[in-house]
Structures are given as C-alpha cells and as structure tokens.
Simulated assay, not measured.
Amino acid sequence: MSAATLIAFVLLLAVAAYTCAGGTDYGAGFWDLTAGGAGRGKRPRWLIDHAMAPVWEVNNVWLIFVLVIMWTGFPVFFQTVFSAMWLPLALAAIGIVLRGAGFALRKPTRRLAGRRIYGAVFAVSSLLSPFFLGAAAGGIASGRVGPGIEPTAHAWYNPTSVFFGLLAVVGTALLGAVFLAADAVRYGAPDLHAYFRRRALAALAVLAVLGVVTLAVAHADAPHLWHGLSHGAGLVLLVLSILATAVTAWLLARTSGAWSRVSAVVVMGSAVLAWGLAQRPYLIPGRLTVAEAAGAPSTLHWLVIVTAVAVVLVFPAVALLYRLDTRGDLEPLTDADLRRGEAGPEPGGGA
C-alpha cells in the first residue's frame, strides 16, 4: 500500500469518527430544537446539557484532524473542495461556531429570554451544520467538482447533495437519540429513557427510507458512486450498515444500553466507509484520483509518522475520556458539592 493510499484511508476513518462523535452532539441539538416550549422541553434539555457538557468540545478534534490531513496530504483536493464548496462549508463553519457559543452561554445565562436566544442558536446551528457538510459530501460523491471547474451552486445544490444533507441530519438525530436514551438510564430518568428511545426508533425508520431513496438517486445522479456501492468493499460495508440498522431496531425495542450505542455507531460509521471506498481510486469520482491529489512524498511520510504518534498518544486519551463519560465519572460539581467544600475539613480529617 502506498503512502498516499494509507493517508487517504486515515482521512476516511477520521471523517467516519467525526460523523459518529460530533454527530452525536449534532443529534442532541436536533432533539433540543424539537423538544417543545420551556415547560414541555425542560427535562429533555436538562438531559442534553448534562450529557453533552463533558465531551462536546473534544469531538472537534476529529474535524481538525480531517482538515490537517486534507491540506497537507492532499493539497489539490483541499483547494478544489474549498474553492467549489466555499458557501456550504462556510455556512457549516459558522454553524459550528454559533452552536458552540449557544451551548456554552445558554446554561450560565440567568435571564429566560437570553437562555431562549442562546438555546435557539445552538439548536438551529446543530441542524444546519450537518446538512451543509452532507451537501458538500454529496457534491464530491457525484463528481460535480474538480480541478479548474468554476464554483457554482450546482456543485452542492443537486439531488445527491440534498439527500446526503438529509441523511446527515437524520443520521445525527439517530445517534443523539440513542446516546441520550442510554444516558437517561445512567441518570435514573425512566421517562426520558422512553422519550428518547421512541425518537431513536422514529429516526432509524426515517434513515432507512432515506437511505433507499438516496441509493435510487445515486443510480441516476452519481453512477460511479452507485457502481462502487453495488460491488466489492463498498457493497460489503453497505450490507453491514443495513444489518446494523436491523440490530439497532431490535435493541431499541428491548432496551437502550451500551450495545445500542455500538450498533448505531456501526450504522453511521460503515455508511461513511462505504461511501469512501465506493469512490476508489478517486477522491472525486471521475475528476481526481488519490495519486493525482497526493502531496509531496516527504509530506506523506511525515503524515504517516504523525498519525502513528496520534494513535499511540492522542486516540487512547480520547477513548478514555469517552469511557469515563459513559460511566458517569465526569459529572460536574453541584452547588451542594461546593457548599460541602466551603464547610472545611470533616472532624478528624486533618488540617
């Protein structure tokens, strides 16, 4: 395997990781948006705040990793995509920034009007960012961008892009609901467990329908992608995603524990991997191959080394953070905890 092919596979894995990790937070924002008014949506939003707080910022590590690999390992690909897709990617970036600001500022704001404004910014941005990221991916998958092609709205506003965007929104909603249903068990909230489990099943059903429609659209609108998804590794991963969908539905009908989280991640992760491998040997079908887009050999070799270092040092730390979060070991201090700290040492506890 050449260095360019290896780095391209690392890039695809990073995109899949961001889809699953960051997508869980986007999905939580989707359910925040649809939770209803202040009274009706109070408890779902309470769970969303508590579940997201420990890890929402670290999920952007995967996005940064994607961008670094793109502009250093495949500069022609980076320039082509960001030139042709500057509008949807700019809107997605604005959404990411506003989403973070809205989530961070909503909880400490005392005035109800301010909390509503920040909450709306967080929720709406969580809907728009995955849609525009998915639309950009659809433009790439359909081969509508390429070196030397003038940027046009048609590059990202086309049938494949629209359905990719919708798949991104519904897929992240599925991940968010599955993870929140499991978190509800951890927080001892059976009403919220049932609430999010029902929404996870609904999102799974919509995702299955959208997936079938998207495949039909790709058959006519993105023939190279269709061929890759109906043959070889792309077909294997697509079948894996379909099987994981069925397993997730079965698990959600029974309970919403750790295994439903795993199966939901497999649904989305294998779908992203199927898309990437279906395009081989292209980064942009019919326009730009992996070899043509690759940077200098020395750059690729250094990227391999940096990736190896990240695998040894960074990824285990991120995995440990997720593990501690799912076990509930990262609970924030409450007012009662702080008051106990102000009370001084317990009798016999030393100075």
Rank of each mutant, 00 (worst) to 15 (best):
E292R: 10
A274T: 05
L175K: 10
L204R: 07
L225I: 03
I305H: 09
T299A: 14
H227A: 12
T214M: 13
L300N: 06
V239Y: 04
G176D: 11
L277E: 04
L283I: 03
R186V: 06
L204M: 09
D191T: 13
R199K: 13
D183K: 11
T214W: 05
S298T: 15
R280Y: 05
L283D: 07
V236S: 09
G211L: 01
A278D: 01
L283Q: 03
V304S: 11
A293T: 03
L201R: 15
V290G: 07
T214E: 08
A220M: 04
P223L: 12
A274V: 08
H301R: 15
A203E: 06
L207P: 00
A233M: 04
L288M: 06
V306G: 10
F196N: 09
P223Y: 09
G295Y: 01
P285M: 09
E292N: 07
A233K: 05
V209C: 10
A200S: 08
A218H: 00
V267T: 10
A173N: 07
A296P: 03
V267G: 05
A177H: 12
L192Q: 13
A194W: 00
Y282F: 15
G234S: 03
S241W: 03
P223H: 12
S230E: 01
I284M: 05
V239A: 11
R198S: 15
R287L: 02
Y195I: 06
A220R: 11
V267I: 14
V217T: 09
V239N: 03
V267P: 01
R199N: 05
H227R: 13
L215W: 01
T248L: 06
V265W: 01
R287T: 08
V304G: 13
L192K: 10
S260M: 09
A208H: 00
A208Q: 01
A200R: 03
W259K: 12
R254V: 14
Y195H: 13
I284N: 01
G286W: 02
T289L: 12
T299N: 12
S256C: 13
A246F: 12
S260I: 10
V247W: 04
W250G: 15
T289H: 08
L225P: 01
A216D: 11
L201N: 10
V290L: 09
S230Y: 00
V212G: 11
V262S: 11
A173I: 04
V185H: 11
L273P: 06
H224A: 13
H231Q: 12
V265E: 04
V212D: 10
Y187I: 10
A205I: 05
V306C: 10
T245L: 14
A233F: 07
A202D: 08
A244C: 00
H301S: 15
L277Q: 12
